[in-house]
Design a protein around this nucleic acid. Structure first.
Lengths: 159, 159
DNA sequence: CTCCTTTGGTACGATTTCGTACTATATAAT
DNA sequence: ATTATATAGTACGAAATCGTACCAAAGGAG
């Protein structure tokens, strides 16, 4: 029953899209004025995976064009949240480092989300989310792997 | 252990954000040139919940400003995918109807996604997604409810 | 070394998203 | 009926995202 199967995929991605939208709105309500989700996402990325990364690597991690990341980084730099320095081992690339202000802002944003999480905990058992987390991680890993792997180009070419 | 609990929420939303990004890229690769995910999302919304809806209701459903929806609808209208008519029961609002071209394009986009779903099915058991679907639906429903319900305004006002 | 290709980053313009201000219509209050 | 308030949509400008073109540096082939 491929129709039923595809309907499930479609529905899962649809729900995920809506949840992303709603959770992003929650996050941005807790960020200082002028700072939006992508800015926070970069700070979070640099904390989680370590800073001193090249702009192009960050762009690839977020699946956005490098021009977009140039703009995002410049905004973070203007606000003193990251420092951009040339890569001593590659004259083309620039490395992005977190400032203490950047680390502090990321920590404060997460702390400010506590009331939202408390509200969520009151109406939604955390166990259920813990149960689906491994599946989400695997799905993300698969899609992440897939976009570099052998795509089906047939329909793309027919486009 | 509130820290552990919040970490799970945070991680779930983070994974969902990445999956949304990756799945959106997959979708847009299958859409005709110039049409992007939000356009498709509106067509899909009108199919699922029925057309003849007011612009403001669609905007609220997607949690976007009405100015954004005005722009999106105008783009769909320009491409002949929806028809906008005045609401006979309210001189202020306009109702959005699907055209046959709009229905056809939505159907074709879903059909064109089949190769992607097949690839996904090969590497990822559909059962696992089916299992998490109810949780995702409930989470979406909770967040949807929550944004209209009694928020914790304390931090918002302190902002 | 020289030529060629690839890669990292930016400049620029087009499209999308969004906040503010404004108009027109509907609803409520009296 | 008149006034006030709320709502639906748009006009406009700012910021974000993205595609294309371009430049500088790195890597490879000969």
């Amino acid at each position: 029953m491929p129709d039923t199967k595809n309907a499930i995929y479609f529905e899962v991605f649809n729900e995920i899209g809506i949840i992303e939208q709603l959770s992003r709105t929650l996050l941005e309500a807790r960020l200082p004025h002028g700072l939006i989700a992508p800015h926070f996402a970069v700070l979070n990325h640099l904390i989680r995976l370590g800073d001193g990364r090249a702009l192009i690597d960050i762009a690839r991690a977020f699946q956005v064009p490098k021009t977009t990341m140039t703009h995002t980084i410049k905004c973070l730099e203007t606000n003193g949240l990251v420092a951009v320095r040339p890569n001593p081992r590659d004259g083309r690339s620039k490395l992005v480092w977190l400032t203490s202000a950047g680390r502090a802002l990321r920590a404060k944003a997460i702390a400010d989300l506590y009331p939202d999480f408390e509200r969520l905990a009151a109406g939604f058992k955390v166990d259920r989310l813990q149960d689906i987390l491994p599946v989400l991680k695997d799905l993300r890993a698969f899609l992440d792997e897939d976009r570099n792997g052998p795509h089906d180009k047939t329909v793309l070419q027919a486009e």
